[in-house]
Amino acid sequence: GATAVSEWTERKTADGKTYYYNNRTLESTWEKPQELK
């Protein structure tokens, strides 16, 4: 079946920190989402 992984995108802030952005829920998080573990 379909997985939720594609909803999350790994992004970088202007100062180079990595965060994760969810295209479906429009939420962002510093922690790696469960779906990516």
Rank of each mutant, 00 (worst) to 15 (best):
E31S: 08
S28H: 09
N22Y: 01
K17P: 01
T13N: 07
N22H: 03
T29N: 04
P33N: 02
E27L: 07
Q34F: 13
Y20S: 00
Y21G: 01
T18V: 13
E31A: 08
A14D: 10
R24A: 08
N23Q: 10
E35H: 07
N23R: 11
A2E: 13
A2G: 14
L36S: 06
L36V: 07
K32D: 04
D15K: 05
T9M: 10
S6E: 11
E10N: 02
Y19F: 10
E31F: 11
Y21P: 00
K12H: 10
E35N: 09
N22S: 03
Y19D: 01
T29A: 08
E31P: 02
Y21R: 03
K17H: 09
K37V: 15
S6R: 09
K17N: 06
W8G: 00
L26A: 11
N22E: 00
K37F: 14
Y19R: 02
Y21E: 03
A14Q: 11
T25P: 00
K32T: 08
T3E: 12
R11A: 07
K12Y: 11
P33S: 02
T25I: 01
A4W: 09
Y20I: 00
T18P: 05
L26E: 12
D15W: 07
A4R: 07
L36A: 06
S28Q: 11
N23C: 15
N22G: 00
K17Q: 10
A4Q: 13
G16I: 00
L26V: 03
G1I: 14
S6Q: 11
T29I: 08
P33G: 02
D15R: 05
E10P: 06
V5L: 13
L26Y: 13
A4H: 13
N22Q: 01
T29M: 09
G1Y: 10
N22V: 00
Q34W: 14
E10W: 04
N23S: 14
T18L: 09
R24V: 12
Y21M: 04
V5D: 12
R24M: 09
K37T: 14
T25L: 03
L26W: 07
P33C: 03
T29L: 06
Y21S: 03
N22P: 00
N23V: 15
K12M: 13
E10Q: 06
Y20T: 00
E27W: 03
S28E: 11
G1P: 12
Q34N: 12
N23F: 10
E27T: 07
D15L: 06
Q34A: 14
E35S: 11
Y19S: 02
E31I: 14
E31Q: 09
N23Y: 11
K37M: 15
W8Y: 02
Y20G: 00
T9A: 08
L26T: 10
T9F: 09
G16H: 03
G16V: 00
E35T: 06
N23W: 15
T9Y: 08
K17V: 09
R11G: 05
S28T: 15
R24Q: 08
G1C: 15
L36K: 04
Y21L: 04
A2Q: 13
T29K: 08
T13R: 03
T9G: 05
G1D: 12
K32S: 04
Y20E: 00
S6A: 11
G16Q: 03
W30N: 06
A2M: 14
A14R: 09
E27G: 03
R24Y: 11
A4L: 12
N22D: 01
K37G: 15
L26I: 02
R11K: 13
Q34C: 15
S28V: 15
Y20L: 01
A4P: 13
S6I: 10
K32I: 11
W30A: 05
K32V: 11
D15Y: 08
E10F: 03
G16P: 00
A14W: 10
N23K: 11
S6Y: 09
N23T: 15
T25Q: 01
E10Y: 04
E7K: 03
A2N: 13
A2D: 13
G16E: 03
R11Q: 08
R11C: 15
R24G: 04
A4S: 12
E7M: 05
L26S: 11
G16L: 02
K12I: 12
T25F: 02
T29Q: 13
R24N: 07
N22F: 01
K12W: 08
N23D: 07
S28Y: 14
G16S: 02
K12T: 12
T25E: 01
W8A: 00
G1V: 13
Y19I: 04
W30Q: 04
K32H: 04
Y20A: 00
R24W: 09
A2S: 14
Y20M: 01
R11F: 11
K32Q: 09
E31G: 04
D15P: 01
E27Q: 12
N23P: 09
V5N: 12
T18Y: 05
S28G: 05
R11S: 05
S28R: 11
R11M: 15
A2Y: 10
E35M: 07
L36N: 07
V5W: 12
R24T: 08
R24E: 05
T9Q: 14
G1H: 14
T13L: 04
T18S: 07
S28F: 14
P33K: 02
S6K: 09
T3N: 13
E31T: 11
E35L: 07
A2V: 14
K17R: 15
R24I: 14
Q34T: 12
N22K: 01
G1N: 14
P33R: 02
Y19G: 00
N22A: 00
W30K: 04
G1K: 08
D15E: 10
L36H: 07
T3K: 07
W8T: 00
L26M: 15
A4F: 06
T3H: 13
K17W: 06
A14Y: 08
T3W: 09
Y20P: 00
S28W: 15
N22M: 01
N23I: 15
V5M: 14
W8H: 00
L36C: 12
G1Q: 13
T18C: 06
K37P: 10
E7W: 06
G16W: 02
K32P: 08
Y19P: 01
K37D: 14
T13W: 03
T18M: 06
W30T: 07
Y21W: 10
R11I: 11
D15A: 08
E31R: 07
E7V: 05
K17A: 08
W30E: 05
L26R: 14
E10T: 06
K12A: 06
T3S: 13
Y20F: 08
T13G: 07
T13S: 08
Y21A: 02
T25A: 01
E27N: 04
P33F: 02
K32R: 12
E31M: 08
S28M: 15
E35I: 06
Y21T: 05
G1R: 08
T18K: 06
K37W: 14
G16R: 01
A14K: 11
S28A: 11
Y19W: 06
K17M: 09
T29Y: 06
S6H: 11
Q34K: 10
K17E: 08
S6G: 13
T25W: 01
L26N: 15
A14M: 09
T3V: 13
W8I: 01
V5P: 12
G1T: 13
Y19H: 02
K17G: 05
L36P: 05
Y19L: 04
T3F: 10
R11P: 00
D15T: 08
L36R: 04
T9S: 12
R11E: 05
K12R: 12
A14T: 10
E7Q: 06
E10M: 08
E35Q: 09
W30Y: 10
G16D: 03
V5A: 15
Q34M: 12
R11T: 05
R11H: 11
G1F: 13
Y20W: 15
Y19T: 02
W8E: 00
A4G: 12
A2R: 07
A2I: 14
K12Q: 12
